[in-house]
Structure formats: structure tokens, C-alpha cells
């Protein structure tokens, strides 16, 4: 009887210490799930998910406050990646039409720009250069195509230019699709 109690007590002490040590030794800073989710999001910072950027959306998903289907720029692929990460069932995208839009970058028609700086303030990634009363322009490589600069522009001089496929970004088609296209002309 006593031996049993001592053994159990000893065991629980040992495991308790072990767990306590592990908790300190392998402590994880921050919210790892939110980080992982954030890493999967496309970082367009467009706010189409109704959160103020990708990070807040990631935190909301991690907290279980948001569905995983609210990111149109990420599209189906991001939703599936999120479902896999979180062990949830894939769900249809909330806004299918928005997800099917081709990738684009914003372009300012410089002749029409009045230099009001409103778009500069709206850009979540500082991809617009310019100053008050000076013409503005967009750094193509850094534009995420979020379209947040479109509504503030008082003269509607910002347009979205779809990014065409170039030789550098071209992807070999998946074989089945190629088989369909391979016709004798």
C-alpha cells in the first residue's frame, strides 16, 4: 500500500518536474499559429477579409473568430493551405468572383494626377511615391494589387493593369491540360 503510494507520488513528482522543465525549455514566444497563418496569407493587405490587413485576419483565424475563406487574393489555394494547417474542412470561398480576378498592379495616369497624396496614405505597403502637389507614381514591384488606392483618388486617375504572363513567370502547363491543347493545326 505504502509502496504504491510512494511510487505514484514519486512518478508524479518526476513527471511534474519534467513537464515544468519542458514548459520553460521549449517555451514558444508569441502566437505560433497566427504566425503560421500569416505566412500563408498573400500579404496584399487589401482588407477584403474585413480586417485591417493580413496579420489581424491571421490572428482572428487563430482565435477562431473568422472563417478561412475570406481571402480573395489568396484564392482557393490559400484556403486549402489554411484548411490543411488548421485541420479544418475546406469551405467554398466567400467571394468567388473576387478570387478569379487576374493579378494586377495599380497604375497612375500621371497626366491626370493632381498630387493630393490621398492614395499615398491609403497604400498599405508604401508603394506609392510622391509629395503634395507633385505627381505620384507607383513602384510596380512593390504594389500588391490591393486596390485600396482606387477609392480615395478624387480624379480617378488610378487604374489596375493586369500583370501579363512573361517568359520569366510562365509555368509549364500541367500535362492533362497540355494534352487537350495539343491539336494538329
Amino acid at each position: 500500500m505504502i509502496a504504491a503510494i510512494v511510487t505514484i507520488a514519486g512518478l508524479s513528482t518526476v513527471f511534474g518536474l519534467l513537464l515544468g522543465y519542458a514548459a520553460i525549455r521549449f517555451r514558444v514566444e508569441g502566437d505560433p499559429i497566427a504566425d503560421q497563418i500569416d505566412a500563408l496569407l498573400p500579404q496584399t493587405q487589401c482588407g477584403q477579409c474585413a480586417f485591417a490587413g493580413c496579420r489581424p485576419y491571421a490572428e482572428a483565424i487563430a482565435a477562431g473568430e473568422a472563417e478561412i475563406n475570406r481571402c480573395p487574393p489568396g484564392g482557393e489555394a490559400t484556403m486549402i493551405a489554411l484548411a490543411e494547417l488548421l485541420g479544418r474542412d475546406p469551405v467554398p470561398l466567400e467571394d468567388e468572383d473576387a478570387a478569379e480576378k487576374p493579378k494586377a498592379v495599380a497604375y497612375i495616369v500621371e497626366a491626370e494626377c493632381i498630387g493630393c497624396t490621398l492614395c499615398i496614405q491609403a497604400c498599405p505597403v508604401d508603394a506609392i511615391v510622391g509629395a503634395a502637389k507633385q505627381m505620384h507614381t507607383i513602384i510596380d514591384d512593390e504594389c500588391t494589387g490591393c486596390e485600396l488606392c482606387l477609392p480615395p483618388c478624387p480624379v480617378e486617375c488610378i487604374h489596375m493593369h493586369p500583370i501579363g504572363e512573361t517568359i520569366q513567370t510562365w509555368q509549364w502547363p500541367y500535362p492533362k491540360e497540355a494534352a487537350k491543347g495539343a491539336t494538329h493545326g
Partner: peptide, 8 residues
Amino acid sequence: MEFATGSS
């Protein structure tokens, strides 16, 4: 003229 295509 247009030729047939395919992967190597």
C-alpha cells in the same frame, strides 16, 4: 502555318 506542339 501552325504546327502541333507537345512536351519533350
